[in-house]
Design a protein around this nucleic acid. Sequence first.
DNA 1: CTGAAAGCGCTTACAG
DNA 2: CTGAAAGCGCTTACAG
Lengths: 327, 327
Amino acid sequence: MPSVTSADVARASGVSRTTVSYVLNGTAGAKISEATRERVREAARSLGYSPSAAARTLRRGRNDIVLCVLPDWPVGPIIDTLLDDLATALAGRGLTILVHHDRGPEPLAELWRQVTPLAVVGLSRFDDDDVRAMVQAGIKVVGTTLDEDADRGVFAVPQTQIGRLQVTHLADRGHTHLAYAAPDDPRLAAFTDRRVAGARLECAERGLPEPQVATVPLDVDAAVAALRAWRTGPHPVTAVAAYNDDVAIAVLAAARAEGLRVPDDVAVLGVDDTPAARLAAPPLSTVWQAVDAQAAHLAASVVATLDGTALPARPDDLFHVVTRAST
Amino acid sequence: MPSVTSADVARASGVSRTTVSYVLNGTAGAKISEATRERVREAARSLGYSPSAAARTLRRGRNDIVLCVLPDWPVGPIIDTLLDDLATALAGRGLTILVHHDRGPEPLAELWRQVTPLAVVGLSRFDDDDVRAMVQAGIKVVGTTLDEDADRGVFAVPQTQIGRLQVTHLADRGHTHLAYAAPDDPRLAAFTDRRVAGARLECAERGLPEPQVATVPLDVDAAVAALRAWRTGPHPVTAVAAYNDDVAIAVLAAARAEGLRVPDDVAVLGVDDTPAARLAAPPLSTVWQAVDAQAAHLAASVVATLDGTALPARPDDLFHVVTRAST
DNA sequence: CTGAAAGCGCTTACAG
DNA sequence: CTGAAAGCGCTTACAG
């Protein structure tokens, strides 16, 4: 607890706290002899001095933390990569990234007031009120949208494109009666809704009937039930666009249980290109996401926001289909 | 930026800052009339006052943040659950949980000095030096170990037990020549090494030959190569304990490619009980982890550490085997 | 029951 | 080139 303060360093090196601060922060315009600088640095080192973040924050009005707010959806490798790249991009500027998993109704305001970060990066969309309050408090904000609109300060990963791409791939192979297999996890609704909407749009533009949407739990019996319903009626579904590879694998398991041939009786297309997709029977065609490009874009967006420079252009070619044996 | 301070609230409600502080913090022993209290609360509300965390931290020497340090390994649903439960347990005490993904060589000290948290929870093991420094700075520490030792302040999830349990399950079914399928991801080494060690120990105690350990990338060709090597020689392997369900599914894919029957020619046992395990062909036997019990124990450990009370007993029955068609 | 005042540790005009 | 001093906003003995 006998914490070392800048006064201790000043005393030990025979200078004032001002000088200590100048030296340690490398303040421009302070002309201090190299000998003094070295003396101060050495004293700081030997005393194990590390400045109090609270005091610095109180004085400066902000600190060196970038707060990253994650929504409630399950964290997967994509988010991991996003955060990794962001951490690397910001580490070079002396910024530390801290992550908060947004769950329940705890207001965002509590959080950023607690932390007083330099910037807040949201991987979910912020309320306009929250954004206004943060900006007013001098905190930089980088939002995210799952939609096509690319407002200023917004990092965008348009989910509708994924649904469209899936339909395009299946329609190109001659399928006309499509199904969309939605996931069971309600936390994914923000993604599901947009991907389904994209699939609907693409079907409409191509003059195809609406895709038949059903939830497919990750369970053989439940998937069989969904598959049977799709195969019933005058126009049985011949191709399924699945929310992701996990759901697609459930559909494959159902097809196996029903004795349907994939892709001859029913084609299946996933999203994510997980290792499991390669290993599935048959190997699963899937939508690959350019995670690295997304991550680089997010990192660049945050850096640009911090610097107040223009936001980088959104990368295109964020997605493409990896064709395997299931379509 | 014209931030509202406690002085503003004091002025608006006609009292001193002392009184504002007492009322808003519910300081015990301060006898303040209900009328005054209400006046202060109302003023705070209408001015949109929220105390400066930095000032409070500077004054008190610590804040209301619990910092959770995650190691480099990929975050999966288990960690998600752990963090979820922890956040819920701490929210009731007005504590906010913030997560830092430990990557690269940035020293831990930088981080906790930046944040000045009330407590640090490590899901990786801390250096003894770090622990000492944190404790000396008045920060509570909850460490984690993947081993059997249950030191004070340590949350433990013994990984050797998993390897032992896998061998037990396979040996009970009459298998004597076992293989261990390790994952490709070097970040998982801390887990892999311990699970393999557990498998070795259990084999030794049962008088079985050592398990043949090989890395099995999540890729059919690579898995086929590993499987062939295991099946070669005078004593071909008849059962594979896989690091997790993903690796097990790679082994299943290899068996399929080689025309081997599962479990008759080769039995396969995973870990995690993911949805993919249920959906595999054949459905995969796997070690289930009591994530909820682990999470509850972690949360209780943290709370006990904060309160300075005795740590909860470690739950037993953390793991058991779910038997399906692959063993 | 309430207020004046000190002080947490830092940074930064302002004076030399 | 360097130092004395103010002040960031809060909490908390200490005095009434």
